[in-house]
Structure formats: C-alpha cells, structure tokens
C-alpha cells in the first residue's frame, strides 16, 4: 500500500519534470476509475452519465497537471475536490435550462399520461416501480414528481405574497378587464420560479418584479448583459405560449 503510493508519487514527479503528454495520459488513465466513480455519484441529477464522465475526465486531467507530489497528500485526496468542483460547475453553467422542463414540467406531464395509460392496461393504478420502468427514470424521481404535483396548486389569492409584507395576491389584481389574466400570468411565473436555480430566479425577479433593465440586472448579478438576455430568453421559452410575457409585458408587482 505504502509502496504503491510511493510509486505513484514517483510517477507524478517524473511527469512534472518531463511535462510529457504521454506520461500525463498514463496518469490520467491510471485514475480514470476515480473520475468515473465520481461522475456516477452525480448521475441522479438529471444529466446524461456520458456528459458527466466527460466533465469528470476533464477535471481529472486538470488535477493530474496540477498535483504536486511533494505536498504530502495522496493524488486521490487532491483530485476529488478538483473533479467534483468541475462537475458542480458543469451543473451550474450548462444544465439549468434543460433541468427545469425535464425534471418539473415534462416529467409531470408524462407521469400523468403514463399513469392513466397504465391504469387502463393493468386494470388498477400503477405502482411507483411500474411508472419508473415505463418512464425509464429512478423510483426516487417518480416519488419526487408525485410530491411536486402538490406544489403545483395555484397560489391562494388571500395568502400573503412572498417577501411582500401584508400584501396578498388579491391586492395585486388590476382593473377587471386585465386583472385575471395578470394573476394567471403571475401564478405561472411563481410556479416557474420555484423550480429555478437561485441565480435565474433572481434575474427573473429583478426583471419582472423590480422592473430593472437588462443592463442594471447584469451589473447587479455580475454577468454580462448578453448573458442576462440569453438567460431571460430561455426562461421565457419555458413559459411557452405566454406571449404577453415574452413581449416584455410587466407583471403587477
């Protein structure tokens, strides 16, 4: 065990001295199991395992290039945070747009349809395991989707709105002609907000509740205006069919 570790450190020293691509590849190959194993730990978060493995390999390659064998830690102890950090960054940067519809919207729709269809073929309501098999997702995902349906109840008009002391959704009803449509729109947005990552939620709130411009949001959140525009576009696409919103109509605050 100790000899293995010493031998491994020697390989890293040799690579650091030579900077040879071949030696680096050998080191990456030697630890590919570690990267794969870490990628698998994140497989339940709704991203294809192949993508996660790819990201983990990139993280592993970075770790190999940066590891200092004379710092007194094992390579695994050094590589795990690097690889996990890389996987987490991947989730943060690439997945939110697909995660929302896939996890919350699409699955809820498919769940209802599949449940109905299985009830007919089985002559009884399906079990979670049967739904999971039919939809090719984990049982845990099904249980969560069933639970999430409860959160899709329309917000009560008389309940205080979040972060808006004493005000109720009812108070935000406008003139009779457009008011109801606006409340519908707001309820839709609130449902969507619940499922968004923190940053996207903040951006949407700044745009439609605080009515800030894209430039103002960009400087407040610390990203470019282009990026804000792209994120908003994607969120609005998720709303599908809510043309009023996509055209930039402002919601009652």
């Amino acid at each position: 065990m100790m000899e293995d570790r010493e031998q491994e450190l020697e390989q890293f020293r040799a690579y650091r001295a030579s900077q040879s691509q071949e030696e680096r590849n050998l080191l990456v190959q030697a630890h590919i199991g570690l990267a794969r194993s870490l990628a698998r730990r994140f497989a339940s978060r709704g991203e294809p395992i192949e993508d996660l493995e790819q990201v983990a390999y990139e993280g592993l390659t970075k770790a190999v290039a940066r590891f200092d064998p004379d710092r007194g830690t094992s390579f695994a102890a050094f590589a795990v945070p690097t690889v996990v950090g890389e996987i987490k960054r991947h989730f943060r940067d690439h997945t939110w747009a697909t995660k929302v519809p896939r996890a919350a919207k699409e699955l809820a729709t498919r769940l209802a349809a599949t449940s109905e269809q299985l009830t007919i073929t089985l002559g009884r309501a399906p079990r979670v395991s049967e739904l999971a098999e039919e939809l090719r997702v984990s049982e845990e995902t099904i249980i969560e989707a069933l639970d999430a349906r409860a959160a899709y109840r329309p917000a009560s008009l008389a309940a205080p709105s979040d972060g808006d002391e004493g005000r109720t959704l009812e108070d935000s009803l406008g003139a009779a002609d457009r008011g109801y449509g606006r409340v519908d729109a707001r309820v839709t947005v609130e449902r969507l907000l619940e499922n968004l990552p923190a940053r996207e939620r903040t951006i949407l709130e700044l745009r439609y509740y605080e009515e800030l411009s894209q430039d103002e949001i960009a400087s407040r959140v610390g990203i470019s205006q282009m990026h804000v525009s792209r994120l908003l576009r994607r969120v609005l696409d998720l709303l599908g069919g809510e043309e009023d919103l996509a055209d930039g109509a402002v919601l009652p605050g």
Binding site: L38, R41, A76, V80, K88
Partner: peptide
C-alpha cells in the same frame, strides 16, 4: 471511505 469523504468535504 476516502472517496466518500472527499465528496462530502466538497459539498
């Protein structure tokens, strides 16, 4: 477990 601990420490 070294790997498990590594993950926990990051998250």
């Amino acid at each position: 477990d070294e790997l498990a601990e590594g993950i926990v420490k990051v998250l």
